[in-house]
Amino acid sequence: MSRLVIKNVRLSYANVWEPKPMQGDPDGKKRYSASLIISKDDTKTIKAIQRAIEEAKTEGKSKLANKNGVIPKNIKLPLRDGDEDRPEDEAYTGRMFLNANASADHAPKIVDRSVEPILDRAEVYSGCYANVSVTFFAFNTQGNVGIGCGLGNIQKIRDGEHLTGERSAEEDFEDLGGDDDDDFLS
């Protein structure tokens, strides 16, 4: 397995607090998951991911290779182009992305900038930015062959606009101060 910490990614479809059944999984196994959005301008990170994927191909050659010992060119790869695969979603425009998963018994540790645990679930959401540890591994299951991306730990580094359209109470309301009942008369 090839391990990598990807810095400054935007989380999308962040299912990091409780495992949920994965869409399209015939076994209905619950998983933690997140889509990690990376700017196409971040060529250093993209190249590091591509190297890690190649390492995983080499390490997992026995799982990936066909009967002739050759890894087919059409195996599934985790690094995808947002402009091609999610053209309707502007959060993915000009971006690459990875979908990372962890089994229900391997919850990601979620920490803040000081590496202190984050306990408030509202702090880590689809749209915030994070550093995320991932592993790349070969798989060959039920005719699906490729390189997968395992979700490791998450370090929130900054807030971002919610991708779900959700708003905080602070965005919706102003501080009225005190207990003045006159506010309810209008």
Rank of each mutant, 00 (worst) to 15 (best):
S133H: 04
L77S: 06
G82F: 06
G146Q: 00
G94R: 04
D179P: 03
I147Y: 11
D27Q: 12
F173S: 08
A91L: 06
K73G: 09
P87E: 01
V145D: 08
R86V: 00
R121P: 05
V70W: 03
D105L: 12
C128R: 03
I71C: 13
K156D: 06
I6P: 01
G94M: 11
G69W: 08
E59Y: 08
I147N: 09
H162C: 02
D112A: 12
Y129W: 11
K20M: 13
S62I: 13
E123C: 08
F173G: 09
A102Y: 05
G177F: 12
D42F: 04
E88H: 05
G82H: 02
E171C: 15
N99L: 10
N99P: 04
G177M: 07
E84N: 03
M22Q: 12
K67C: 08
C149G: 03
T164G: 08
A104T: 11
R86P: 01
S2E: 09
G178P: 06
R80W: 00
L185A: 12
G28M: 11
N15A: 09
D182N: 12
V132L: 10
G148Y: 00
E55P: 03
E166V: 05
A104Q: 13
D42C: 02
V9K: 00
K61D: 01
P21K: 04
C128W: 03
N153P: 02
H106P: 05
D83M: 02
A107R: 04
F184S: 09
S62H: 14
N66Q: 13
P108F: 14
F184G: 14
K61I: 06
R10P: 00
K20Q: 14
L77I: 07
P72D: 04
E55S: 12
E161R: 11
R51A: 09
E170W: 10
L77K: 01
D27R: 13
P108E: 10
R51M: 04
N66E: 13
K156R: 15
A104V: 13
G94Q: 11
G69N: 01
K63H: 09
Y32W: 05
K40R: 10
P26M: 12
Q142L: 13
Q155R: 10
L64Y: 02
N74W: 12
K63A: 14
H162G: 01
K73E: 09
P78S: 03
G94S: 11
T141Y: 15
R95E: 14
E171I: 15
D85V: 10
D85M: 09
E18Y: 14
